[in-house]
Amino acid sequence: MTKTDTTADAPPQAGTSQHSYIANQTKDTYLKRLRRIEGQARGLQRMVEEEQYCIDILTQVSAMTKALQGLALGLLDEHMAHCVVNAARQGGPEADEKLKEASDAISRLVRS
């Protein structure tokens, strides 16, 4: 396997931060969502600069927050479906590590 190989068949090496499980279709979807969120952030900045009505700004902040949460849940789902499942199949300390990562990520999402 070369460094540019991004197939979902081979798990990343333990201790690395490879993200090879994001398929090209999913990656494109995430990037499209992030561009939309970036546009929302620019829109919010404009609204504040133009001193628009506070409630309208808060409504847009809520929409942006929901968009970020949706992105996070998609990434978490993908991590669980690929990284955690593959590590669990292989067993060993990496399985425990992946479960802990997922649990920590869920905890961070719940707190936010």
Rank of each mutant, 00 (worst) to 15 (best):
M1D: 11
K3F: 04
T4D: 11
T6G: 00
T7G: 14
A8I: 09
A8P: 08
P12M: 02
Q13K: 09
T16F: 03
T16I: 02
Q18Y: 01
H19D: 14
S20T: 13
I22G: 10
N24S: 03
Q25G: 08
Y30K: 13
Y30F: 15
K32V: 04
L34H: 11
R36N: 13
E38D: 05
G39I: 07
Q40W: 04
A41E: 08
R46T: 11
V48F: 09
E49Y: 01
I55S: 02
I57K: 04
T59W: 00
Q60R: 06
V61F: 12
V61Q: 07
A63L: 08
M64A: 06
T65Y: 11
T65I: 09
G70P: 07
L71Q: 04
L73A: 12
G74T: 08
D77G: 15
E78G: 12
H79N: 06
C83M: 09
C83A: 11
N86P: 11
A87G: 15
R89K: 13
G91F: 08
P93T: 10
A95S: 14
E97P: 00
L99T: 04
D104R: 13
D104Q: 15
A105D: 11
I106S: 08
S107P: 00
S107H: 10
L109I: 11
V110D: 01
S112C: 00
